[in-house]
Write a protein that binds this DNA or RNA. Structure first.
Lengths: 222, 222
DNA sequence: CAGTGGTCTAGACCACCGC
DNA sequence: CGGTGGTCTAGACCACTGC
């Protein structure tokens, strides 16, 4: 289908027929059919048949899959380079408490990172981690690269999911000001709660992206 | 699990055992397990077991599923009311041509709609439809309500998918100006190509949302 | 009514994990 | 090595569609 050998509109032989042709059981063949249907390559109609539909271009760097910001930078073709990085300790606000399953006032570690490309700032992240998770891991400044990878290798925590709110931050936001280096540079804000494999919140993040450098896509279905 | 009767960390009996308990075959039981796993309610570990994980709040109005703007308005608790609506005919631009599988200069129908709530504008949409699809359906001004429903009932076209780019539009954009009624109102732009069940592009849309009225969420997994 | 996909079964064997 | 989930099978019957 990708090579155009099976044109859009092509109708497959029936499932028992195809299963026999491949020498597998019908259930096994149907598992493959289901995958292709989920990928949006074929359309299956009960009582009618299975058809090839128009193949859409694949957009690899979209929002449907969770990526670390390091991975997003790489996908955008940018060299990863920190502009600055600060670590400080603070108290959990009401807002963070709601997302991180904490109480207001609980100790948190606040990590701030700016990234550059071609001598210009392109994004800024502020990470909020419960002190109970972060411990003293960030006290020695040996940390660099992906936070996802750091959590996985140093603390054995795997990030599996995120819940992301997409916003236009107010122009008065200082992070916006530091990124809006050109007059018409839009800045997009993602406020994200990140969860491990048990759905426990691990950290909350404010990610500011220059929209002239990063483009964001979603594929949506009804 | 939703009622908390099975707490996070609870381990299910083995699959053959559970299948027997429900009086179904193991494959059938596994189909149910797979659904719960996709919903993010349980975690299945090969060779280990199946466990209840922490239940997340369900956010009904998110970007993971495709909705018509009418549905989004309803989800935001707003009464649907058009501010204005105009239909005009035009020629396809290079940009639209790429998304709509047309050639530049092909005839298109351009539909513009503004929506109000509590006496204020809250969103604006500009829809681009190929004349070959729209025909003369929009000439008589009898059209109101959801464009999705209109296409389905009048033309027999079902919108199944969309490919959405999320942007911060420049402040100079006239649609932004008309929506930015308060000093710190952010405006989010979604540029969307909508496809039918055969993946054929049906229309292209510019949807401008006031971000103080609409909030946008995505759940993402690795 | 014939032909298609949708579902379910009982059983077998494999792959992985922890002890 | 024992117990878990992952995969596959051959066959049966049901549900939907179009003629």
């Amino acid at each position: 289908m990708d090579r155009g050998l099976l044109p859009p509109g092509y109708r497959f032989p029936s499932e028992p027929e195809m299963a026999a042709k491949f020498g597998v059981s019908r259930e096994t063949f149907r598992a493959a059919v289901k995958k292709l249907e989920e990928e949006g390559k074929i359309r299956v109609q009960h009582g009618v048949g299975t058809f090839v539909i128009r193949q859409l271009d694949h957009v690899p760097s979209n929002l449907n899959r969770l990526q670390s910001t390091s991975e997003m930078l790489r996908a955008a073709g940018l060299q990863e380079s920190d502009r600055h990085q600060t670590v400080r300790h603070g108290e959990c606000t009401e807002e963070w408490a709601a997302y991180l399953n904490l109480k207001a006032g609980d100790p948190v570690v606040i990590l701030e990172r700016g990234r550059m490309a071609d001598g210009e700032p392109v994004m800024t992240s502020v990470y909020i981690l419960p002190k109970s998770i972060a411990g003293r891991s960030f006290d020695s400044a040996a940390f660099s690269g992906s936070l996802f990878q750091f959590l996985e290798h140093e603390l054995g925590i795997t990030i599996r999911k995120s819940h992301t709110e997409i916003k236009v931050p107010p122009a008065s936001d200082p992070y916006v000001k530091s990124l809006a280096v050109h007059p018409d540079t839009g800045v997009l804000l993602m406020q994200q709660t990140h969860y491990d494999e048990n759905n426990f919140p691990v950290f909350y993040a404010y990610d500011y992206f220059r929209n002239d450098v990063f483009r964001f896509w979603i594929d949506r279905m009804r």
